[in-house]
């Protein structure tokens, strides 16, 4: 393995790749195998840092920084927030089968996918013409080239992406809203300190623990 690694690489590059690869794989296995979801999230951070190192190794400095900032700084923290908020950090019996033989089938399918992708990765893959985005090597920094490509060639997808983010924000707000707050205002009775009687007709339709919770809060205020 080391001979093949060193065929085209210098020793520091090979060592960096090997260390980062080990970090990535150990973190990924940790995500899958560890029982506590908080530990899974921390293992995911480990994998993401390893991938950021591999990005730097391959002349993607901007993406490495974004990887650390966005993924480990925002997404994993969001995961941890939800884990803590919901209190779902109970341990799960990883080896218990719901369907008989599900684990075995999953592992066999995974090995098939691995073999297939590795075979594809070691054969010839270059077909057709290059994209029009521009070369990776050449004068200028990585950020400048990436920015020029995004704001010229890929300007329309970039704008569509912003629309997607707005849709995601609106969707998150709609999902996080409590069912009783139909017009986005405060819960009934909260403003004037009044207790609003719950009509039995409304209670029969889709009202559940969340609404009762909210009514309790309104009473408490």
């Amino acid at each position: 393995m080391s001979a093949a690694l060193l065929a085209t690489a210098t020793i520091p590059d090979a060592v960096t790749f090997a260390l980062a690869a080990v970090i990535c794989v150990v973190g990924a296995l940790g995500v899958v195998l560890v029982r506590n979801p908080v530990h899974s999230a921390l293992s995911l951070v480990m994998t993401l840092f390893g991938i950021a190192v591999l990005f730097v190794e391959q002349d993607a400095q901007f993406l490495a920084a974004v990887q650390v900032i966005v993924y480990t700084g925002a997404i994993v923290v969001l995961f941890l927030f939800v884990i803590m908020l919901l209190g779902v950090d109970r341990r799960e019996r990883v080896l218990a089968d719901t369907f008989r033989g599900q684990r075995v089938v999953a592992v066999v399918l995974g090995l098939m996918v691995l073999a297939e992708v590795v075979l594809l990765g070691h054969t010839r893959w270059t077909t057709g013409a290059h994209a029009a985005a521009g070369p990776l090597n050449g004068p200028g920094s990585n950020v400048a080239k990436l920015g020029r490509s995004i704001f010229t060639t890929y300007l329309v997808p970039f704008e569509v992406t912003s629309a997607l983010l707005v849709v995601a924000i609106v969707g998150a707000v709609v999902l996080a809203r409590r069912p009783g707050m139909r017009d986005g205002s405060a819960p009934p009775g909260a403003a004037e300190g009044l207790e609003e009687p719950v009509s039995p007709g409304a209670a029969g339709e889709g009202l559940d623990a969340a609404d009762e919770d909210e009514d309790d809060k309104a009473v408490a205020r």
Binding site: A9, A14, F17, A21, A28, V31, V118
Partner: peptide
């Protein structure tokens, strides 16, 4: 010169499989 691209692709395949 960095490590051959096949190794990166193999690592990515491994991560995807996991």
């Amino acid at each position: 010169m960095s490590v051959n691209a096949s190794w990166y692709l193999t690592l990515a395949a491994l991560l995807f499989t996991i």
